[in-house]
Design a protein around this nucleic acid. Sequence first.
DNA 1: GAAGACCTGCTA
DNA 2: TAGCAGGTCTTC
Length: 271
Amino acid sequence: MPELPEVETIVRQLCARGVEGRRIESVRVDWPRTIEPLSPAVFSERIVGASLDALERVGKWMLFALSTGETILVHLRMSGSFSLTPGPYDRLVLMLSGGLVLYYADPRKFGRWRLVDDPGVVLDALGPDALSSEFTCAGFRVAMRRHRRMTKPLLLDQSVVAGLGNIYADEALWEAQIHPETRSDMLTDMALDRLYVAIVKVLRNGVENRGTSLGAGRSNYRDVEGVAGANREEVKVYGRAGQSCPRCGAVLKKSVVAQRGTTHCPGCQPR
DNA sequence: GAAGACCTGCTA
DNA sequence: TAGCAGGTCTTC
């Protein structure tokens, strides 16, 4: 389930496969609710004939800039993925010029496509992208101190910093040696600085390794080529409850924090 | 904050 | 068969 590194990997691979610059020749919608809020007919009518001028990522959003001036915004949510070959869970298919076909698959049907004049209607609600130059240590301190919430759910709040999900949030907290339930306004400057560095580090590593895939199953993350991400080897805590902490050797503990499964090390991430 | 909603597939 | 899953939104 895609967080920033997984989305970034998909975007890079689609660009490498030459998706940009192609004309949309036709559209097939297999699960109408994928598109929000337009009907499949209106959506298709407005994008067919346009070309995909540019593809980029902001947070966990994918942006397809169209030659019409409109933008398709795609959020993969829990199980969305892209492929250039058909599969059993395809929900939306774009037939592109030159015979390239873009298949959007989504077993759990949570992913959403939106067609907007101005991407700002979605992106303005986001904090800085975690791997952009707008994400600064000083800004991060201010954003975290504005709240008095537990640190982990705040990291998952995309209006604070855009791109983290459950895996990389747990990894960043472990890296920075911060307990997930620590209140954000109780974090010292040093702790916030460590956390900032940790966020950037775990996400960069994730991108370098083409994302994190866990377990088997078809709603498990795969890149555009259908290949699993290699970052699983780098994961220190997520999904490793009961095993020993790679840093201090204590037994990693799983709990529920703000309704999300959370793994941390009681030894080196003290309250 | 918490709980439910949106969905299906996999594991125990 | 129950419970769980990497995301987000809505409604208490």
